[in-house]
Structures are given as C-alpha cells and as structure tokens.
C-alpha cells in the first residue's frame, strides 16, 4: 500500500448553524487547504459525505459543491455516509499512484429537524420503520442489554460523560454543559431509561474538511503529517434481533484488519453518540488502560450527524500534527446501535 497522510484538518462544530452548508463549509475548506500549503487547483480528488434526509431535500451535495468551486471541472465523488467513509474512498483513490492529493469534506446539520426521529426512517422500511423507534430508544435498548449483561454500569456511563465534558474545548457557538462529577450526573432523571441526558449526544451542526497527501509530498508540505497506517470498515446485520448488542463485532473486525489490535496508542478518538457505546467500542478496539480517550470531548459534546465520524479522525490527526501524540486510533460509526464501523490507525512516522 502507498503511504498516505492526513496533512491538515479543519472543523466547525456548533449548537446551531449560523449559515447554510456552503457558508459553513467555505471557511473550513479554505483553512484545510491553507494548512496543507495547497491551492484548490492542486487537489487531485475531491470527495464528500452528506445526507439528504437531514435537510429534507434531495441532492444536498450538489448545492454544497459551490464551497469547492468545481471549475475547471474536478475529479469528484460523494458518499451518502459519514465523512469518514469519504476519507476511505479518497485513501483508496490515492493508492492508484497517478494523483497525490485529495480533499475530503463533510457537512451535517442535525438541528434542522428532529434527528432522532429522522433516523427512524433509516430502519428496515417494512418491519421496523413503521414502528418509528427513534435512535435514542434503540440505543437505550442496547444500554439495557449491556447493563443486564454486566458489561457496563450506569456509573461508568456517567464517568464517560463527565470526562467528555471536562475535555471539551471552548469554541465559538459550541454547546455548553455544566461541569459535573459522575456522582452528581447519576442523581439526574432518566430521559429514555436507562439513558440520562448526559448519556446522549446533543444535536449539533457542523462541517469538517481534511487534506490527504501521498508519499514524500506529504513530508514536503507539512512538518508533521499523520500517516494512515491502517484503515478498514465493516458492517453488521441490520435487524437488531440477530445481533448481540453488547458486542461490536464489526469494530473488532475493522480494528483487526486496520492493524489496531494489540498496539498501544497515545490517543483514541471514538465516535460514540451514547456513553455506553464508548465503553463498547473501547473493548472492541482492545485499548490499553493508559490511552487518552476522546481528548476532543467526542460526540457527546458535539455530534453533527455525518460529520462526527470524520471529526474523530481529524481530531486524532490534530494531536499528531501538533506533536502532542505519536500514535492514535480513530473510530467512526453509522447505523442503529453501531451497525457499521470504521477504524483508522494514525502514526507520526
């Protein structure tokens, strides 16, 4: 495989969008290109992730193209998936050897509707969707299964939430949370039992952009590229009844294929929209006790649908870019109860 690195990353995650998709994307794409020391015309491949059902309209990605200015014509693709999967497509494209640079971006505004209800339309349209089980309700079933199986406790879940809130970086328009200890959080009422408000990610709006560069060129462009040393993704069955919800076999398989198992990492960025899912993914990744988990705060403090997975990978890369980590593993998820998972291993060298 050809060596490919994340050379730059930029994002903007907010509790409520200040503009439309293009208005949000332009500054972030501009920043990602600037940090990569590349001009728009030097990008060989562009690929994005978005979801029509968030905006309630077809072809969201067509409008968003204005943010890259596809003229003269560009080589471009789009996945109706989290931006993490767009990153995978770009990484594959760079393996061919004829181009060295790729731009990835994702945009998602979860606040335009009731995302937890919208996500019900993602379920099997014949036997599940007509019941309208929302995404929080399904996650609660999973949490209940884990509590019953003894694979996590409500206190551990609260500890995840408390740590995420402590780690959260202040930023313009970011969500704000009262800083509370796990014990205090446990005193709050259930919202969808056994989940409490702090166990569930907020609805956020956001955009993220990333530049990938292959080979020696990555070293020439930036001082500390974050090299992709393994990337893989796997999907599980959709019907929840045929899955063991207390395990994430697709994460474990992707981690194995990406070469993440049995390795130690300085940082792990896990895409867990619910606190119990972080515990689940942590186990599936086989992480050692000393790894720093979700130093960005993770999805629990900012979760724009479609963006949050790419954001995890970008936040992990950022730690390598700034020299505060030598190695990192990042995870992205999609589908009800962690149906589909991607694992990406990053290294400074």
């Amino acid at each position: 495989m050809r060596d490919v690195a994340i050379v730059s990353f930029a994002n903007h995650i907010t509790s409520h969008a200040e503009g439309d998709d293009v208005e949000m994307l332009v500054p972030v794409i501009t920043e990602a290109l600037r940090a990569a020391n590349l001009k728009k015309k030097e990008i060989g491949f562009t690929v994005s992730g978005s979801c029509d059902y968030l905006g309630g309209r077809p072809f969201s990605f067509v409008m968003a193209l204005d943010a890259v200015g596809a003229w003269p014509p560009i080589e471009e693709s789009h996945v109706e998936m989290d931006g993490a999967f767009a990153l995978y497509e770009a990484w594959v494209r760079l393996q061919h050897g004829d181009i060295d640079t790729a731009l990835i971006y994702a945009f998602g505004r979860s606040t335009t509707g009731s995302t937890r209800d919208v996500l019900a339309t993602q379920l099997d349209p014949y036997v599940m969707a007509p019941l309208w089980p929302d995404s929080v309700g399904l996650a609660a079933l999973q949490a209940r299964a884990m509590l019953d199986a003894g694979t996590c406790t409500e206190r551990e879940m609260a500890q995840v939430a408390a740590r995420s809130r402590r780690s959260k970086k202040p930023g313009p328009g970011a969500h704000t949370f009262a800083e509370m200890q796990a014990g205090d959080l446990l005193g709050l009422p259930y919202t969808t039992a056994p989940l409490r408000a702090h166990d569930c990610a907020p609805d956020s709006d956001g955009v993220a952009a990333m530049v990938l560069v292959a080979g020696d060129r990555a070293k020439k462009l930036t001082s500390r590229p974050a090299w992709i040393r393994g990337i893989d993704h796997r999907i599980e069955a959709h019907q929840l009844g045929v899955r063991d919800l207390t395990k994430s076999v697709s994460t474990a398989l992707a981690a194995e294929k990406a070469g993440a198992l049995g390795k130690s990492f300085d940082v792990a960025e896990i895409h867990a929209p619910f606190s119990h899912q972080e515990i689940l993914v942590r186990k599936a990744l086989g992480l050692a006790g000393d790894v720093e988990i979700n130093p960005s705060g993770g999805a629990l403090v900012g979760n724009p649908y479609i963006v949050a997975g790419l954001d995890r990978i970008g936040e992990a890369a950022r730690r390598i870019h700034d020299g505060s980590a030598k190695s990192a593993v990042a995870h992205a998820t999609s589908g009800p109860c962690l149906q589909q998972n991607l694992v990406c291993v990053l290294s400074e060298g």
Binding site: D52, E80, M81, F85, V118, R234, I235, H238, Q239, Q340
Partner: peptide
C-alpha cells in the same frame, strides 16, 4: 428510506464486510 444500504446489508451478503454507499 434514509441510507437504505444499512438495511440492505443482509440481503447483499455484506455482513462482516466493507460496504460503501
């Protein structure tokens, strides 16, 4: 159907494999 590939994974024998949409 929003992102129907999730629901179609079983029918297409994709379980345990990479699937892109």
């Amino acid at each position: 159907v929003m992102m129907p590939e999730l629901y179609l994974a079983d029918a297409l024998g994709a379980v345990g494999k990479p699937m892109l949409r």
